[in-house]
């Protein structure tokens, strides 16, 4: 009896993914003690993982807290600081989202990217420790990234500008590691994200001028195989000034 091809498909069979050959496999298993034993063992293992895996249940207190969050209407919420921040942004984003009348395919894709970048920006600012390397000195922050991300870049000189560097952290977008720098301008926080350009696989067109569609101003550009995003609740002109500083530092 030829078992090899079936042994390779055992997982597919057990996971209910063997569609075309299901009957043939069934027929083989009925006549082959070796494969039948494998199927039995596989079923037992899956069952054991299923039982062991259903292990943790949320506490009643946590469930109640989440239900309160879900019921809290934006603006009326008075719960936790970070949640407030997020909720406020949610409200703005949702309202802005509803005002779209035309969302072409191209545009939807770009929106999706912007919204992922906005997610990273908001989530970081809402966390209790937004930066992993706390420094206003670009000569400290730049080497910190070495060995953590698979590319290098230069940070702009900020003397004589109104921007100040708060620090940096590693970030991930779809498992691609990137650099995240946080700047301050008056009371505004601005994030600059840098990822390898190839990880975007044409999800974005060339460069965009500042857009203001997400309640944040966003500017993105591509230089030397890297994709940059500058995003924040500062004005578009401010974002553009920071972007220009980066472009000058990374010609």
């Amino acid at each position: 009896m030829v078992c090899e091809p079936w042994k390779e498909k055992l997982d597919l069979y057990l996971d209910g993914e063997l569609l075309d050959e299901l009957r043939v496999f069934d027929a083989h298993v009925r006549n082959c003690p070796s494969c039948a034993a494998d199927v039995l063992a596989g079923v037992q293992m899956k069952r054991a993982i299923q039982i062991a895996g259903k292990r943790f249940a949320p506490s009643a207190e946590f469930r109640q807290r989440m239900q309160l969050h879900m019921q809290a209407k934006p603006r009326r919420s008075s719960i936790g600081f970070s949640w407030m921040t997020v909720t406020a942004v949610v409200a703005i984003l949702a309202v802005v989202g509803l005002t779209f009348t035309y969302v072409g395919r191209e545009r939807a894709r770009t929106q999706q990217v912007y919204s992922e970048v906005a997610d990273l920006h908001v989530a970081t600012l809402a966390s209790s420790s937004p930066v992993d390397v706390v420094s206003s000195d670009r000569h400290t922050v730049k080497p910190w990234f070495q060995g953590r991300i698979p590319f290098t870049f230069d940070l702009p000189e900020l003397q004589n500008s109104e921007f100040s560097l708060l620090g940096g952290r590693m970030t991930y977008l779809d498992q691609t590691p990137g650099a995240h720098l946080i700047y301050e301008l008056r009371k505004h926080r601005i994030s600059v994200f840098i990822f390898p350009e190839e990880s975007w696989r044409g999800r974005l067109d060339e460069n965009s001028s500042v857009t203001k569609e997400l309640s944040f101003s966003v500017e993105t550009w591509s230089r030397g195989g890297l994709r940059y995003f500058a995003i924040g609740d500062a004005g578009g002109a401010d974002i553009d000034r920071l972007a220009k500083l980066f472009k000058a530092a990374n010609p």
């Binding site: 807290r65 879900m70 919204s115 908001v122 989530a123 809402a126």
Partner: peptide, 22 residues
């Protein structure tokens, strides 16, 4: 870890609600 799991779920719902329009 229990506390980290709660934070993670809470943050997930916040992000999902925010991104729900997309």
């Amino acid at each position: 870890n229990r506390e980290e799991a709660e934070d993670l779920v809470q943050e997930t719902y916040a992000k999902a609600l925010k991104g729900f329009s997309s």
